[in-house]
C-alpha cells in the first residue's frame, strides 16, 4: 500500500515550483491590496460629506453703515470677519490669524490687530508687521447684492502674497 501513489496527487501533477510561487505571490499581492483598500476606505470614513457650520454667503447691510477709515467689529462674533473701510474702499478681513488660527483683537488706540496667541500684529489693511505670522490676513469676496446690501462670500478668499488683492472681487469701491 505504501508504494502506490494516492490518486489525489495526480491532479496536482502540473504544480511546479514556479507556478506555486506565482500563485502564492499573487495571493499575497491581492491580500495586501485588499488590506490597503480597506484601510483607505476606513480613512475616508473620517471625512464627513455634510457639515453643521455657519453659511459661507451672507449679507452685512448697506455700505453707508461703515464709516470711512474704520474697522467694524460687529460681525466678528457671528461670522468671524472684520469690515474695514479705508476711504472709498471696503474690504472684508478674515478674523483668523495666519499663524495658528486664533482670533486677533482690534486695538483701536494702537491702530493694529494683535493676536493673543503668539503676538502677531497686523496693520489695518491686514498686512503683518510683527510677531510670527508668516503672511497678511486673508480677505473674502464681497459684492453688492440687488437690494443694495453688501454680500460676503467666505468660500472665496484672497491672499496678498499670491497677488490676489488686486482682484476686483476682493474689495468694494464706493462711488
Amino acid at each position: 500500500m505504501a508504494s502506490t501513489t494516492p490518486p489525489t496527487r495526480t491532479a496536482n501533477a502540473q504544480l511546479t515550483r514556479r507556478s506555486f510561487l506565482e500563485s502564492v505571490s499573487t495571493g499575497w499581492f491581492i491580500f495586501t491590496a485588499a488590506c490597503i483598500a480597506g484601510l483607505s476606505a476606513t480613512a475616508r470614513f473620517f471625512f464627513p460629506n455634510d457639515l453643521f457650520e455657519p453659511p459661507t454667503r451672507f449679507k452685512i447691510g448697506l455700505p453707508e453703515n461703515y464709516a470711512p477709515n474704520s474697522v467694524d467689529e460687529n460681525w466678528k462674533a457671528k461670522y468671524r470677519i472684520w469690515v474695514v473701510r479705508d476711504g472709498e474702499k471696503i474690504v472684508i478681513l478674515n478674523a483668523t490669524c495666519t499663524h495658528l488660527g486664533c482670533t486677533p483683537n482690534w486695538l483701536l488706540t494702537e491702530g493694529k490687530f494683535k493676536c493673543p496667541c503668539h503676538g502677531s500684529g497686523f496693520y489695518r489693511d491686514g498686512i503683518n508687521f510683527e510677531g510670527p505670522a508668516p503672511r497678511p490676513l486673508e480677505r473674502f469676496k464681497l459684492s453688492l447684492a440687488a437690494d443694495g446690501q453688501i454680500e460676503v462670500d467666505k468660500s472665496r478668499k484672497y491672499q496678498k502674497e499670491l497677488g490676489q488683492w488686486n482682484d476686483p472681487d476682493s474689495f468694494l469701491k464706493i462711488s
Partner: peptide
Amino acid sequence: GSDVRFGLLGGTVVGPA
C-alpha cells in the same frame, strides 16, 4: 475641507463633530 486637519476635526473648525 479635505486636509489632515479636516479628517481630525470632522469639520473646518473645532465644532460639534
